[in-house]
C-alpha cells in the first residue's frame, strides 16, 4: 500500500485487540501507527484508533470487537477485512504445485480418483 489507512476498533476489548493487531501487522511487514500516537510525516501504513479518537488520515473501516473474541482472534478477523479491502496482502493459501501433487496422490491412494 502507499496510502495511509485508518482502522477503527470499538468495543470493550478494543485496546487488547489493537495491540494484537499491531503485532500481526508488523509481522506481515506493514508499518503501524498504534493508538494514541501520531503518524510520522510520509507515513503510508495502518493507523489504529480506538473508538472515535481522531486520526489525521481518512477513516477506513470500523470493526466492533466481540466480547467473545480473544485479542488474537479479533486481530485475524481484522486482517481479513484489511486484505479484502486491498490494504494488506495475505499470502495465498491455495495449493502450491507440490501440494497439488501431494493431494492428487493422496486422493488416488484413497480411491477417489483413478
Amino acid at each position: 500500500m502507499n496510502q495511509p489507512y485508518t482502522i477503527r476498533l470499538t468495543g470493550e476489548h478494543a485496546a487488547d485487540a489493537a495491540h494484537a493487531l499491531g503485532r500481526r501487522l508488523v509481522e506481515l511487514g506493514s508499518r503501524v501507527c498504534p493508538p494514541g500516537q501520531a503518524p510520522p510525516a510520509g507515513f503510508d501504513g495502518v493507523v489504529i484508533r480506538l473508538g472515535d479518537a481522531p486520526s489525521p488520515v481518512p477513516a477506513g473501516d470500523t470493526v466492533a470487537i466481540s466480547a467473545h473474541d480473544t485479542p488474537d482472534f479479533a486481530a485475524e478477523k481484522i486482517l481479513d477485512v484489511l486484505h479484502e479491502n486491498g490494504v494488506i496482502s495475505l499470502e495465498s493459501e491455495t495449493y502450491t504445485p507440490e501440494e497439488e501433487e501431494e493431494i492428487r496422490k493422496r486422493l488416488s491412494d484413497l480411491g477417489y480418483i483413478d
Partner: peptide, 20 residues
C-alpha cells in the same frame, strides 16, 4: 473457530481459523 478437513495439504499448512 474452524479446523480444516482432510484436503489440508500437510501438518505445516495454516489449517485453522483464526491462525493462532
Amino acid at each position: 473457530w474452524l479446523v480444516a478437513g482432510f484436503l489440508t495439504p500437510n501438518e505445516q499448512a495454516p489449517y485453522t481459523y483464526p491462525r493462532p
